[in-house]
Structures are given as structure tokens and as C-alpha cells.
């Protein structure tokens, strides 16, 4: 592996995908997308147009005081149906009870490693490769090896109550990239799971802590995340074609710090999966929540 284990490799791949289809009104953006997919360099003007479309169609919004921000305005651009705006308003309300249950996972030196979320009393789900980083591959948590910070909002300060030590490994999925860790989750509400996986085109949201990952996202990173990395953010996207059984493909904008982010269904506020990896301009991948429930 030339010093690059599969676990480390996975950790480094989280990606901005962008919308698969660009609205007819955005011809410049469409040209840029086609050029990129054909392996050709778009013009700077086309790239700018695409950057705007990616940001508006696959928006990332911040959480402040446990509340999801509104979606960014798409003034003079008919890029977002009214139904989606309404669905987002409803989701803001439903998700309020769960957003405090999503935390940033850090290593012993408080470095951002991934994302985790409460799945039961004292139980946190994240990716197995996140555990591998915390444990240097041993998959056993030493005292002080990791912690979860449940707030970590933009321009906000964490209190001691927002931070819990990750104390032990409860369960490791034998095949899928999921582990259950024990932590003091206090009164935080476990997320609600949904059975089955959504159909292609369904609106979903990842909530997590995107890190700055220019290597895997050579374009759009700054504009999509507005330069705000490592803080609690929600990314709106869609389920992609090919989703089946335990694998969910999606295009929510995520980066390496999103490992272990819950994937919410916008219409219900329930969690359909756990984000695990991605490939720039192609697809991100999550594991179905059924696989998490099997560990609980």
C-alpha cells in the first residue's frame, strides 16, 4: 500500500458532486459540467456559472443555536421548486430535536476526525474508518483517545456539557463501514431510523462537520462551504440512481470531516443511512440505517 492503508485512503475521499442535471436556464453551467465530464477544461466564465449553480442547487447551510439556517436565496434564478422550500421549512422543525445529537469526533489532540450521532442512550454511530484513526488501527479505544463535541457551531463556544469522551467500542460491523461507540450522550435524542432506502431523486440531508479537503475537491470547495470548515453544517442533496439494498448513493456536498454523518430524509426527518465515502463529481456513498440497527 506504499504507506497508504485502505482506511487512510477512504478517510481522504469525500466529495462535492454537484447536481446531475442542470436547469435549462443555466446554459453556461451545463457547458462547464459537460466539459468536466468529458475531461476538458471549461472556460473560467463557464466554471464560475457552474460554481454558482452547485452552491445553489446543493447548498450547505450552517446550524446556529441548534437551528438549521434557511436555504440560500436563488434570486433571479429559478433553481429551486417551491415544494422543496416548503419541505425544507418542515425539515427545519422536525430536525431541531435531532441536530444536537450530531457531534464532531476528535482525536486525543482535539483534531477533527469525523462525525458521529446518537443512536441510543449512551451510543454513538460513526464510520469504522473513523475509529481506525482514533485507535491507530487497533479498533480499541484507549482512555482519552477520542471525544465527541455535540455543538461545534460556527462562531459559537462549546461548553463542557457539549463534550463527551468516547469510552469504548460497543460494536463493529463485520463488513460495512460502521461502528457503535459508547459515550455519555446525556439527554440527547437518538435519531429516528427509517426502514428501506429512498428512491433516486429523493431529497436528503447530511448533517456533519465538513473539513477543508482541497485534494479531493479541486473545485467549488470554498464557494460551496463559504470557507466555513469544521463546524456543524447541513448539506442538501438527492439520492442517486444505483442506490440499492444497503448502499445509498447521494450528492450532498460532503468532505473528509463528514465521515459518519447521518443522512436524513427531508420529508420525514428520519435517518436513512450513515455517510461513508465519495468521489468528486460522481457520487457519495452511505450505508443504509438498517445496517446500523443491526448493531444495536
Amino acid at each position: 500500500m506504499a504507506g497508504n492503508s485502505p482506511v487512510e485512503a477512504v478517510r481522504k475521499v469525500r466529495s462535492i458532486i454537484g447536481p446531475l442535471n442542470i436547469p435549462d436556464s443555466e446554459a453556461e453551467a451545463q457547458s462547464a459540467l459537460e466539459a468536466l465530464r468529458n475531461g476538458e477544461a471549461p472556460t473560467p466564465q463557464q466554471l464560475t456559472a457552474l460554481e454558482i449553480v452547485v452552491r445553489l442547487l446543493r447548498p450547505v447551510v450552517l446550524l446556529r443555536n441548534g437551528q438549521l439556517d434557511d436555504l440560500p436565496e436563488t434570486t433571479n434564478r429559478d433553481l429551486r421548486p417551491v415544494e422543496l422550500k416548503d419541505a425544507w421549512s418542515k425539515f427545519q422543525t422536525i430536525a431541531k430535536q435531532y441536530v444536537g445529537s450530531v457531534g464532531r469526533i476528535e482525536d486525543a489532540r482535539s483534531r477533527h476526525v469525523g462525525t458521529g450521532f446518537v443512536v441510543g442512550a449512551g451510543l454513538v454511530a460513526t464510520n469504522r474508518h473513523v475509529l481506525a484513526v482514533l485507535s491507530s488501527g487497533a479498533e480499541v479505544l484507549a482512555p482519552g483517545a477520542g471525544r465527541i463535541v455535540f455543538k461545534q457551531e460556527y462562531l459559537a463556544t462549546n461548553s463542557a456539557a457539549d463534550i463527551a469522551a468516547l469510552v469504548e467500542v460497543v460494536a463493529i460491523h463485520p463488513v460495512k463501514d460502521i461502528v457503535i461507540l459508547r459515550a455519555d450522550t446525556a439527554a440527547r435524542m437518538p435519531v429516528a431510523f427509517v426502514d428501506g432506502v429512498p428512491t433516486a431523486g429523493a431529497n436528503i440531508v447530511t448533517i456533519g462537520f465538513p473539513g477543508k479537503d482541497e485534494a479531493n475537491n479541486p473545485l467549488f470547495l470554498t464557494s460551496v462551504f463559504d470557507g466555513k470548515f469544521g463546524v456543524k453544517s447541513a448539506a442538501l442533496g438527492e439520492v442517486l440512481d444505483g442506490t440499492a439494498a444497503s448502499d445509498i448513493f447521494h450528492d450532498c456536498s460532503t468532505t473528509q470531516g463528514n465521515s459518519g454523518s447521518p443522512v436524513f430524509v427531508v420529508s420525514t426527518g428520519q435517518v436513512t443511512g450513515i455517510h461513508r465515502s465519495g468521489y468528486f463529481m460522481y457520487r457519495n456513498e452511505a450505508v443504509s440505517s438498517a445496517e446500523i440497527r443491526a448493531l444495536l
Binding site: 466539459a35 468536466l36 479541486p218 463529481m281
Partner: peptide, 11 residues
């Protein structure tokens, strides 16, 4: 940009 085109092309 060239790297992005290659990566997008792979997808």
C-alpha cells in the same frame, strides 16, 4: 482545473 476534469471524467 485539469485535476478536476480528470476526476470528474473518472466518475
Amino acid at each position: 482545473v485539469q485535476k478536476a476534469t480528470i476526476m470528474a471524467g473518472v466518475g
